[in-house]
Design a protein around this nucleic acid. Structure first.
Lengths: 158, 158
DNA sequence: GGGGATTAATTCACTATTCAACTTTTAACA
DNA sequence: TGTTAAAAGTTGAATAGTGAATTAATCCCC
């Protein structure tokens, strides 16, 4: 059993690193959300638009989209319904597998993406990327990559 | 105006760093949430418990707690109501300012905290801290700290 | 080719979060 | 002092997210 006295508590240094990471994650998401607000988009909306924009024919299977955005299928389903109501995407059935559906970018969705992307990139730069020295950004990525891999290996389906 | 051609798009390196950071944030929160589930706590619950545990007399003003957990007052209010119903905290009125309220850890809340903390720390170690070389953790903190400061300066009230 | 497991996606009921409106108390200051 | 502004906190309605149950199609393999 894990008892208090044999618990490897975080050192001061570790604690600081951990809390800083937490704070940055949260504050950053808030700031990006705020910067997207004038365009009527949430972070989640934007991420869907990015994924579909980069996909062949601007379409992805619901499952794939859920996997690449790290969301549950249920959540994605709701999300796509909202975006469908907003006219940004539509669902299309899949011929090769009749259980399946594609989420497809509409014209309006694509226009929105092209219009908003520069502002979003500017926001990401301003509040994150440009605050690092280039070599620090590299080592950030280098040290974070194994963490991401570890975590991907851990999770089943979200 | 920002047009497409003068947008300083992210380089490949930058993009990778950015997406890795995003993925780690999200996957990590999910994993920690999952590890807390057996104890009937959410990440939010746990964070409140930590803050109150570290506070003098195990109590904090609602506003201070909201500020230190980076939540809106409204959200915190709902959160504390839930935790009050679960018996983990209680509200106490403040003599010096009769608008004010304290959130106070109950005995049960404190017991819960002591019981769960070792497991949570283990989880943070396993899925984050121990995946870095010590010097990498240091440079992570060093490069993230200015970002946190920048973001704190940006936000008004969440 | 037929029965059972698996997969894709949605739905339903519940819980959590947001945002604006509101109440009460304190602060400011003319 | 009065009276207006600001702050602390809550509430309620609307929106978003979760997890289990459900439906429908496909896969497997004997």
């Amino acid at each position: 059993m894990t008892t208090d006295s044999d618990t490897p508590w975080l050192t001061d240094q570790e604690q600081r690193a951990w809390r800083t990471h937490l704070d940055v994650s949260r504050l950053l998401m808030h700031q990006l959300e705020r910067d997207l607000q004038p365009f009527g988009l949430t972070n989640n909306d934007y991420e869907i638009l990015v994924n579909l924009s980069e996909a062949e024919d601007h379409r992805l299977r619901m499952s794939d989209l859920a996997a690449s955005t790290l969301q549950s299928k249920s959540r994605l389903s709701h999300q796509i319904t909202r975006m469908e109501n907003a006219g940004l995407v539509r669902r299309e059935s899949c011929e090769s597998d009749r259980r399946g559906l594609y989420a497809v970018l509409t014209e309006e969705g694509w226009d929105t993406m092209r219009r908003v992307a520069p502002h979003h990139v500017a926001s990401v730069r301003k509040h994150f990327i440009d605050l690092f020295a280039p070599e620090d950004l590299q080592s950030l990525r280098a040290s974070l990559t194994p963490v991401a891999e570890h975590l991907r290996a851990q999770r089943g389906t979200i």
